[in-house]
């Protein structure tokens, strides 16, 4: 039963050492019906520092979700290696509504704790903290079908944070939301990340979202997915997701990433 209580956190500003090391990762899928091999990810290598926020951007079908699923242990690599330097397994926030419809908001958030058999009182304290953190306190006893898409993703985020794991993997968590809701949740995610100092790998197809959130942006090419760029995002923290759009560098970088995404993948 691992740390469910809040630990004293090192500041997100770099405590040295890599949290994630991926080297020469290749993944392919085989469809035996059509006897067809699809290479999803080809020879991808990158590192993520402890406490760093990294976004992987790429067009749909470029294998970025596959990379994340391999990091989460939901999929096996074909070759190459993935090393996670962490005492806890990574927590994942999924793409679609992954909230369990038969559990209330509180029960959904408590799910990882209840699987581990954490005492009821301790669960309740921790869930209450998460409800406050994600602004869900008023919806504690609601069932998922009563919630909006944005609310459901808040629940997913709260569930991923509840047992305080070191690494957070996020698979286009805000992809299905409208723009206003997405902006609000991005700002909240930044606030939460700044207070918890977790290592985050965030998948998105939105260049805008990647630049808003990340310390570093990894750009992937269309299938077979390869890394084509590794860019440092210069904006200072804490960030204001609206204000930073006045910065000229934001638009220069947007242009730069778009140029990379638009260039045809070399054979």
């Amino acid at each position: 039963m691992q740390a469910v209580q809040e630990k004293v956190r090192p500041s997100p500003a770099k405590t040295a050492g890599a949290a994630i090391e991926v080297s020469h990762l290749t993944k392919a899928f085989y469809d035996s019906q059509d006897d067809r091999v699809t290479v999803a990810v080809s020879d991808v290598s990158f590192e993520v520092e402890r406490g760093e926020f990294v976004c992987i951007v790429g067009p749909s079908g470029c294998g970025k979700t596959t990379v994340l699923r391999i990091l989460a242990g939901l999929e096996d690599e074909l070759s190459g290696s993935v090393k996670l330097h962490s005492s806890t397994p990574p927590a994942m926030v999924f793409q679609e509504a992954s909230v369990l419809p038969w559990l209330t908001v509180s029960q959904n958030i408590a799910f990882p704790l209840s699987l581990k058999g954490v005492p009821r009182a301790q669960q309740e304290t921790r869930v209450r903290e998460m409800l406050t953190l994600t602004g869900l306190t008023d919806f504690a006893n609601a069932l998922p079908h009563q919630l909006s898409g944005g609310m459901k993703q808040r629940v997913s985020v709260a569930r991923a944070l509840v047992d305080d794991r070191d690494i957070l993997l996020m698979d286009e968590p805000f992809g299905a939301l409208d723009e206003q809701t997405r902006l609000v949740l991005q700002q909240e995610l930044l606030r939460i990340w700044e207070t918890t100092g977790k290592t985050v790998v965030f998948i998105t197809h939105s260049v805008d979202e990647a630049l808003t959130l990340a310390d570093r942006v990894l750009v992937m090419s269309p299938r077979p997915g390869r890394l084509v760029a590794d860019m440092r995002v210069p904006f200072e923290r804490p960030r204001d997701v609206v204000e930073m759009r006045r910065d000229k560098r934001f638009w220069d970088m947007t242009y730069e990433v778009w140029r990379l995404l638009a260039s045809p993948a070399e054979a």
Binding site: P89, S98, P112, L115, R159
Partner: peptide, 16 residues
């Protein structure tokens, strides 16, 4: 399938 993935990521055993 996503519910199964959620369970696995949350650390569920086969029985759970």
């Amino acid at each position: 399938q996503i519910y199964m993935d959620v369970a696995k990521n949350a650390g569920a055993s086969r029985f759970q």
